[in-house]
């Protein structure tokens, strides 16, 4: 446990060090980089170092304290960004739970029936090649047509569904690998106790799968965030961080620091989701031998 705490502390430290490093690089580039952008070997790849394209870090930070718009009763931008990020966080959470449920259920099903695995897995792989941008309007229109037992599809649910669409795949594949990782000798032991398939699943396969499931869930968590933000942007859903990003990007010429406040908000959202899974990781793996922790 002590060792685990130290590792968490170390990782947190490294996280802040790497952020500081990026900040230093940013400001350094502003000093040495070309004002109007530049070409490298004839290709325009060097970004412009002027204050419109790359505002100073302190401008971005101080922008958080200022009101969102010029009107006198406008909220400070940190509040608006936080609200937007929290809204998207809830959508991503719904998508993550939806995706995990479907992913884990699919993995269990594929473990139980070999034919399922052979028949289903190729389709799951193909499903991930469909571009999200193309899928988003489709899901919205399908959802709009759905009316069952007085249930009307809220617009935000489409964003969650797209989050789930990106989340379920790594979770299904990782969980499947994990469920199959139970050693043959342990499976034989459960057989010798005449344990049912469900008992074996609950008492052996799932616990054995945890070390495989944790990294899969981390991927799934960031997938759900990406799915939700992209869905917000491409369907124009109001209230979330995705919408703020496009709105602020339009104002970038007059207020260049503004869009970065929203971009950082989206990054914070991803971190919050990953942190949730990391917390579960620490709790679930606290009694495991050190070598198997990821």
């Amino acid at each position: 446990m002590n060792q685990q705490l130290r590792r968490v502390a170390y990782r947190t430290g490294m996280f802040f060090v790497s952020i500081a490093l990026v900040a230093v690089l940013w400001e350094l580039y502003k000093v040495v980089g070309p004002e109007k952008g530049g070409k490298l070997f004839g290709v325009a790849i060097l970004p412009r170092a002027n204050d419109t394209a790359m505002p100073h870090l302190w401008e971005m930070l101080s922008r958080y304290a200022q009101p969102e718009m010029r009107s006198p009763n406008s909220n400070p931008i940190w509040f608006v960004v936080f609200k937007g990020a929290f809204y998207s966080f809830r959508l991503a959470l719904v998508g993550f739970f939806l995706g995990s449920t479907i992913g884990v259920a699919l993995a269990a099903l594929m473990t139980r029936f070999k034919t399922m695995e052979r028949g289903l897995l190729p389709y799951l792989v193909i499903s991930q090649t469909v571009p999200l941008i193309a899928l988003a309007p489709l899901v919205v229109s399908w959802g709009g047509k759905l009316h069952i037992f007085g249930f009307t599809w809220p617009r935000w649910l489409s964003a969650s569904v797209l989050g789930a669409f990106l989340a379920f795949f790594p979770i299904a594949v990782g969980t499947l690998r994990g469920l199959k990782s139970a050693p043959a000798a342990s499976l034989e032991l459960m057989d010798s106790y005449a344990a049912s398939w469900k008992q074996t699943l609950v008492k052996l396969r799932f616990p054995a799968a945890i070390p495989y499931m944790v990294p899969a869930f981390k991927l799934g968590a960031s997938g759900s965030v990406i799915g939700v933000v992209v869905a917000e942007i491409s369907t124009g859903l109001k209230g979330g961080i995705g919408r703020l990003i496009i709105e602020y990007a339009r104002q970038a010429t007059g207020d260049p620091a503004k869009v970065f406040t929203a971009v950082f908000g989206a990054a914070g959202l991803g971190l919050a989701m990953a942190g949730l899974v990391a917390l579960a990781d620490v709790l679930l793996m606290r009694n495991r031998p050190k070598e198997t922790t990821t």
Partner: peptide, 18 residues
């Protein structure tokens, strides 16, 4: 086997880590 009339032990102890 259904009545668990026997216990079994193998070369590897095979205890569950968790």
């Amino acid at each position: 086997r259904l009545d668990q009339d026997y216990g079994m032990a193998f070369q590897q102890a095979g205890l569950f880590d968790w």
